[in-house]
Simulated assay, not measured.
Amino acid sequence: MDKTPLQECPEKTALQKHCEFFDQDKDGTIMPWETYKGFRDLGFGFITSTLSAFVINLFLSYPTQDSKIPNPLLPIYIKNVHRGKHTSDSDTYNTDGTINPKKFEQFQKLIRECTNGKDVITTLSEALKLSELFRHGFDPVGGTASKGEWVFLWLANDYKLDAKDIQASYDGTLFEIIAKRRADEKKK
């Protein structure tokens, strides 16, 4: 098994930072149980977290590994996470996992387009409409993945998304913010 600790990566890409939240033990791989724990920390229930962990690790494990033989434990290797980029995404991440600033600048405009002029997405239909703006023709797998990502992000962020939230998601900081908020809520 090829395990390269994320700390050894000289410069992490934005996509690696986005995924790093789910690497609970910071060893450079995200195992299904770590994905599950990450979803629980974001406030999702047992069933949603279990299904998400299975589906996400199932689809991202093989493209991110260096071996041609699939690993039955379904690890996601963060150093290669750029290989798991799917179609019908926002194209904000370049193929190497860095951020494309031109694409990112379009989010404020797209949010207004989805919300009839508001600066924040506050309904499920608006979140789904945002995902539809990125669909590449007939693309059931990529389109479904895109919808899932936007809906999960909207749900985890207390049913709202603005350009600042989206930027924090892409640069890897939003998940930590949400998890801390959820932990603080549990303490009360």
Score class of each variant (00 low, 15 high):
99 I>W: 12
110 L>Y: 14
138 F>E: 12
145 A>G: 00
110 L>M: 11
133 L>T: 10
107 F>W: 14
123 T>W: 05
117 G>E: 11
100 N>W: 02
124 L>Q: 07
140 P>S: 07
120 V>K: 12
150 W>V: 09
111 I>W: 12
104 F>R: 11
109 K>L: 10
154 W>D: 04
134 F>P: 01
113 E>S: 14
100 N>A: 08
114 C>I: 09
150 W>I: 07
148 G>W: 04
100 N>D: 15
125 S>N: 06
101 P>R: 06
135 R>K: 14
135 R>Y: 14
108 Q>T: 13
118 K>M: 07
152 F>S: 14
124 L>A: 03
101 P>M: 12
122 T>M: 04
119 D>V: 00
141 V>R: 04
99 I>D: 06
104 F>V: 08
119 D>E: 11
106 Q>H: 06
101 P>W: 03
153 L>A: 15
135 R>S: 09
148 G>K: 05
99 I>Q: 02
104 F>A: 10
130 L>K: 04
112 R>N: 10
109 K>S: 12
146 S>E: 00
137 G>Q: 05
146 S>W: 01
145 A>E: 05
98 T>Y: 02
124 L>T: 11
151 V>E: 13
150 W>Q: 09
98 T>L: 04
139 D>R: 01
105 E>R: 08
139 D>Q: 09
111 I>Q: 06
121 I>D: 01
125 S>D: 15
117 G>M: 07
129 K>Y: 04
106 Q>M: 12
153 L>F: 13
129 K>D: 13
102 K>I: 02
121 I>L: 05
